[in-house]
Design a protein around this nucleic acid. Structure first.
Ligand SMILES: [Zn+2]
Ligand SMILES: [Zn+2]
Ligand SMILES: [Zn+2]
Ligand SMILES: [Zn+2]
Lengths: 126, 126
DNA sequence: CTTATATTTGCAACTTAGTTGTAATAACTA
DNA sequence: TAGTTATTACAACTAAGTTGCAAATATAAG
């Protein structure tokens, strides 16, 4: 796990991600762990884990940052990019294990992309 | 143009969008017009114009809101959705006139999606 | 043109996600 | 065990965006 030290903050945060299949927002993590870990630390550990390729992040429709486990546990490559889904009813936000074609753009260099889909999840469709 | 009144704020904002082909961020608009229009008014007029189908909006990689003219001048439909491109060198942000396939998701209802691409624009590729 | 009504505006104060600096603390190394 | 370096908490800050309200202005009615 790279240069990161095994501190209580790191282990508490990793536990949250190992206990769920979905993504977790910074807001949610501060709600859950804010009494045991300072929010600054939460933000900093999350970035470290992202740098280390343990987590990846994306912005939800509300502009809030979400994190999720990386399946491959390596730095996120452009080829790894997958869409994310946010449920408007229950708030569940998750990685979609689908490949999306990043359009070829003439005269432009594509470096990164984000595809986010909003709707009703499997549990919330009527 | 719906129920919106022809006020100076509306006309100044519309002029900005008619003078450019690219998208404009709220930040940029406040920078340009903040001395003539209060920022609260800028935010409120932008939402009105979006409700009216004159503009559409999306979030940039930084979480800042961007607005751009709608080509069709009708409420944004799911079929109208197009990707947006943000240049990391010059900051130019624009609509891409490309169709993206929104993947069919089993057991889920798709309501909205956003596809944003980051890279170097035609003027900034070396 | 004047008045009435409804929308829009500016202002100040607020909310909220996220960041910064720093001194103290804890993890790792030799 | 002692030294070095990374990590932490805390408080203060930044910045995008929102809210409530009284004053101003656009439009409609007379
Ligand atoms: Zn749901
Ligand atoms: Zn993901
Ligand atoms: Zn550029
Ligand atoms: Zn667009």
């Amino acid at each position: 796990m790279g240069i990161i030290r095994k501190t209580e903050s790191v282990e508490l945060l990793l536990k949250e991600f190992h206990d769920t299949e979905t993504a977790l927002s910074t807001i949610e993590l501060i709600k859950r762990l804010g009494k045991r870990i300072n929010k600054t630390t939460i933000y900093r550990v999350l970035s470290k884990l992202e740098e280390d390729g343990v987590l990846h992040s994306f912005l939800g429709f509300d502009g809030v940052k979400w994190f999720a486990r990386c399946k491959s546990h390596t730095q996120v490559q452009i080829s790894d990019i997958h869409p994310h889904f946010q449920c408007i009813s229950c708030g569940k936000t998750e990685c979609l294990d689908i490949k999306v074609d990043i359009p070829k753009l003439v005269n432009r260099e594509v470096l990164l992309s984000q595809f986010i889909i909003k709707g009703k999840c499997n549990l919330c469709v009527a």
